[in-house]
Design a protein around this nucleic acid. Structure first.
Lengths: 347, 347
DNA sequence: GCGCTTTCTGAAAGCGCTTACATAAGTATA
DNA sequence: TATACTTATGTAAGCGCTTTCAGAAAGCGC
């Protein structure tokens, strides 16, 4: 009866299988041919000893971490699970691990972020990484893929994002053409949020195409956040600004708008039509059900991983991938459906 | 002009600072005293070389990975972000990294799960880890904390879960006492789901306390899933089973119930009261707003990390932590609120 | 001034793997 | 049968750190 304090190492396996540790390594990694008979012995030894190779040792020796890092500013938010799901799935099927890091709240003092020292490549969502760091990674040619963020000119890094502008145009067109709205509020997202900027661009273009002048009073900041847009909408109402529709920037902001409008006794969509962006889970359950734009978030995640892996394999990656968006018409824009369908799936 | 192909190592720093690598290591880890002047030189060298220690080398040499693993069966689901947020935050503030692994879909062939080889300890959500593996980890005394799952007797591992039974009792009591309902359906979760079992126990106890016999016809399976509970509810209606209230098991199932009831022309809450469990984000936006039980998911995550870290530090951990639940009364039970408040926060 | 303790620093031995490189068979070629 | 390839395995040199151990330097009391 032998006592082993710590878990078995590769040499325990080698001893038991009567081979060298190199051979054990080879059967584990399966890259170099090993006589089936020998391999079988090794496998048995591994099984019996319940041997699992230390990741750190493998990483150190092979100089590849076999993991992908994901950096985002905040976990939570209605669309986060979708994104993560896509990323997770694609990462797994590609045989990589996933390390997640959120830069939420105050930037930690001493914590070193994800980078060359612990990942093979990085996925970065919106502007969760400083430009300095991004530049540094680019300088050392570390593989990075950006999601929903375009880097500065000099930093040439693949980007996956969605057709924000087209989505916004569809929405505004619909409000104008189908429902005759002309005084449409746009509630921006946070400062420097690229999605928000493109949506605003779409808003402006659509108005211009219909020869409707842009009224600066109708562009306010909702911060892609329920509370903030609630406040913004309240102020708009208090200030007596006239409007007959609201493009809320995203679905979270739409909820804030709903609350403010209902509190003020305005009927949605009769007095004011409201549209959102993202099609998060709850949108279809609002009453009235929210007209919005569906963004293929999960697919963004998958595609980002795919591109990153191309980079890891030394292949060329697509420098810009634009995912198509789709308008989801429900009731808040003024469209009518039969009674009871507001809760039905996907409508 | 010197070219360095790969990134600097600790000896580059040592050379530049004119100290030994041991000293560099010491100033990095800050555990052993170093003369301020020397430390300053080292810090400068680190800055200039942009040195970041390789995690793998540190892990290998120190035999601690400094990371915590999280295993769950599926990413996605309305309460996942909350859980992750709590875990993430607490992990960071404790100075650990977080590795996430979902066992969703078919169990991957060759992928080695999280374990001793790449983490210092594991967080396991519901039954996402096989009992075999759990037993093995327990045998080698590997730190593990379970969430929403009680292990078999012989495996003594800390558990964090919520007051499922109490929550259910509150709900059922409320339906009976405040709204006079007596024919209450319970829609179970998935097979072997511990949360579901406790909720059912609460359901039964509450009925018994009011001397209402349990009617087996009223206990059906909704699977904590919208589609499945939609189908189950439809069947119930088609079969002509009489009931005046539904305890949906969780909020996702409540949505399925809503749809089926509305399709059948039954009024909520007049004909049938509906209550859920979890208080996920969309619950308050349903119409009528859903009466449910709030589970402190984020806090479950935080607490799980705290307990795991106690284990990592060799301290005793709480073997069972039960988080209090709170009933959130809205409208779907039959309670009345003023017009327009259904969208207001937290009601 | 001399031994003693107390700090600080360096030398060097690993941590557990991967991977050239070397070697030993085995097979085909002439 | 000698020669040149193949192919399977072993040998050993790291990968880039942490940490033990020991020695040098500095402070202290007498």
């Amino acid at each position: 009866m032998k006592l082993k304090t710590s878990s078995p190492t590769i040499s325990d396996v080698a001893k038991k299988a009567k081979v060298s540790i190199a051979t054990v390594s080879r059967v584990i990694n399966g890259k170099t041919p090993v006589v089936p008979e020998t391999a079988e012995r090794v496998h048995r030894a591994i099984k019996e000893l319940q041997f699992v190779p230390r990741t750190a040792a493998q990483v150190l020796a092979s100089r590849k971490t076999n993991t992908i890092g994901l950096i985002l500013s905040e976990i939570g938010g209605a669309f986060f699970p979708h994104l993560l799901k896509g990323i997770e799935a694609e990462t797994r099927t590609s045989g990589y691990e996933l390390l997640i890091h959120s830069t939420q709240g105050a930037h930690d003092n001493q914590r070193k972020p994800l980078g060359e020292h612990n990942t093979d490549g990085l996925l970065v969502f919106t502007s969760s990484l400083s430009l300095d760091e991004l530049g540094r990674l680019h300088d050392i040619q570390f593989p990075v893929v950006l999601m929903h963020q375009t880097p500065p000119r000099e930093i040439n890094v693949p980007v996956i994002t969605i057709e924000n502008k087209d989505g916004a145009v569809m929405l505004i067109d619909h409000l104008i053409e189908m429902h005759g709205r002309r005084q449409i509020v746009y509630m921006r997202g946070p400062e420097d949020h690229e999605d928000s900027e493109w949506r605003e661009r779409g808003y402006r273009e659509a108005l211009e195409m219909h020869n409707i002048p842009i009224n600066p009073n109708l562009i306010v900041t909702g911060g892609f956040d329920e509370e903030q847009s609630f406040a913004a909408m309240q102020k708009l109402i208090r200030d007596g600004i006239q409007f007959d529709a609201v493009f809320a920037g995203d679905d979270d902001a739409a909820i804030g708008a709903y609350r403010a409008l209902k509190n003020a006794g305005r009927l949605i969509p009769d007095d004011v039509a409201v549209v959102g962006f993202d099609d998060v889970q709850f949108s279809r359950y609002l009453s009235p059900a929210l007209t919005t734009v569906r963004a293929p978030i999960e697919e963004v995640g998958r595609e980002a991983v795919r591109q990153l892996i191309r980079l890891l394999n030394g292949q060329q990656a697509q420098s810009l991938t634009l995912m198509r968006t789709e308008m989801i018409i429900r009731e808040s824009c003024g469209c009518k459906f039969q009674e009871g369908t507001s809760l039905s799936k996907n409508i």
